[in-house]
C-alpha cells in the first residue's frame, strides 16, 4: 500500500440507536481505511451495518442514533465530532453519495440541469449561467446524448440509465475525493448492472477519487473494486485486496458468503445456516460465532480484533 496517509480512516466506530422500547447497537467497533484513488467495496448481509457506516461517514445518521465511540479521520479532521454546519461544507464537496434508486433521488418538479447546477452553486463561487453551463458539460462527460436539451428536461422524461447518469453527475459535480455508492446495482438487470459499475469506475478514475461501493452482492465486487471489506454484525470481518479475498477467503464468514453466491459442484445453492443476529446487545464474542462451523467456546467469549495476516486484515481467532 502507498506511503501517504489514507484518505479516510475509520477506527473502532460504534453507534447506538435508541428507540422508544429498545436500544440497538448496529456498529460495534468498525475499523477500516480507504486509500486515495482506490475503489473499495463494503460487503455484507442486510443488517450488517454497512449502510449505517456510510451514513456515519456523511454525518447523516437517522434520528435517534448517535456515534458512541471511535473516530472517522479525513484530512486531519474527526468527522465523528464536527458540527452539522461544517458537515454541510463537506457533503457534496469532499464526500458525496449516489443512491440505489437514481430516479427517486432527483426532484420530480425541477429540471435535472437546475438540480446539478444548484449543487455547484452551493460549493463553488459561480453564477447561475456558469453553473448551468457546467451542469451541461457534466452531463455530456457522462455520455448523456443531447445534454443541452436534456438538462432542461424533468426527471420523469429520463430513462433509468439516464437518471443514473444524472444522479452521478450531481454527486461528482464538485469532484469529491470520496464517492459512496449505496447499493447502486440492486434492482437492475445484469446488463445494466455492469454498465452502472463501469460508469462508476470510469468516473472515479477520471476524477482521481476514491469509491466506497456498498453492496450485499459479492459477485459485483470482483470487476469493480481493488479492495474489499467484509462486514458482519456491525464489525469488519476481513479486509484486503479483492483478488486475494475472493480467491482465498480466510475468515469463515467470508468463505460462506462467497459460497452462497456461487453454485457448488453438484449444482445446489448453498446458504449460511441461521439468521443474522439482531443487534440488540453489545457483542461479547465474535458476531458470527452462532452460525460458524468452526466456532469453539472461545469464539463466544472473545471479541476477535482485526489483525494483519499476510496482505490482509482478518478478525478471527481460529486462523
Amino acid at each position: 500500500m502507498s506511503n501517504t496517509s489514507p484518505l479516510i480512516q475509520i477506527d473502532n466506530l460504534s453507534a447506538r440507536i435508541r428507540n422508544e422500547d429498545q436500544t440497538l447497537f448496529p456498529l460495534q467497533g468498525v475499523s477500516f481505511s480507504i486509500e486515495r484513488n482506490v475503489r473499495m467495496a463494503l460487503v455484507g448481509e442486510s443488517g450488517s451495518g454497512k449502510s449505517l457506516t456510510a451514513s456515519a461517514i456523511l454525518g447523516m445518521l437517522p434520528t435517534g442514533s448517535q456515534i458512541t465511540d471511535g473516530t472517522i479521520i479525513m484530512n486531519e479532521r474527526n468527522l465523528a465530532l464536527i458540527s452539522e454546519k461544517e458537515f454541510q461544507k463537506i457533503r457534496g464537496k469532499e464526500i458525496s453519495i449516489v443512491f440505489q434508486n437514481p430516479k427517486a433521488s432527483l426532484n420530480p418538479v425541477r429540471t435535472v440541469g437546475s438540480q446539478i447546477a444548484e449543487v455547484l452553486r452551493v460549493h463553488e463561487r459561480i453564477n447561475q449561467k456558469q453553473s448551468h453551463d457546467k451542469a451541461i458539460q457534466l452531463l455530456e462527460s457522462l455520455g448523456l446524448p443531447d445534454p443541452k436539451k436534456r438538462a432542461r428536461d424533468y426527471p420523469h422524461q429520463y430513462s433509468g440509465g439516464m437518471a443514473q447518469r444524472a444522479a452521478l453527475a450531481m454527486a461528482m459535480a464538485c469532484q469529491p475525493s470520496l464517492l459512496i455508492a449505496d447499493e447502486p446495482t440492486s434492482g437492475l438487470d445484469a446488463t445494466l448492472q455492469q454498465q452502472v459499475l463501469d460508469l462508476l469506475t470510469q468516473q472515479v478514475q477520471h476524477q482521481k477519487s476514491s469509491l466506497l461501493l456498498i453492496t450485499h452482492d459479492i459477485s459485483v465486487v470482483g470487476a469493480t473494486c481493488e479492495q474489499v471489506a467484509v462486514m458482519y454484525g456491525g464489525r469488519i470481518m476481513e479486509v484486503g485486496p479483492t483478488e486475494l479475498i475472493l480467491r482465498r477467503p480466510m475468515n469463515p464468514y467470508t468463505e460462506k458468503l462467497i459460497e452462497s453466491f456461487s453454485r457448488s459442484q453438484d449444482g445446489k445453492m448453498t446458504s449460511i445456516p441461521g439468521t443474522v443476529r439482531p443487534p440488540t446487545t453489545e457483542l461479547k464474542g465474535c458476531p458470527f460465532a452462532d452460525r460458524c462451523h468452526m466456532a469453539n467456546k472461545q469464539c463466544h467469549t472473545h471479541l476477535p480484533e482485526l489483525a494483519p495476516k499476510g496482505d490482509r486484515l482478518i478478525a478471527c481467532i481460529n486462523v
Binding site: M60, G92, F99, M170
Partner: peptide, 27 residues
C-alpha cells in the same frame, strides 16, 4: 424522500432544501 436525502448529501442547508426542493412539490 430520496431526493431530499440527496439534496442533504449534496450539502444543501435545511432552508434551501425546504424552499427549493420541498415547497415546489407541495405547490
Amino acid at each position: 424522500k430520496d431526493f431530499v436525502l440527496a439534496a442533504r448529501c449534496a450539502g444543501l442547508t435545511d432552508w434551501k432544501i425546504l424552499r427549493r426542493h420541498i415547497l415546489p412539490n407541495v405547490a
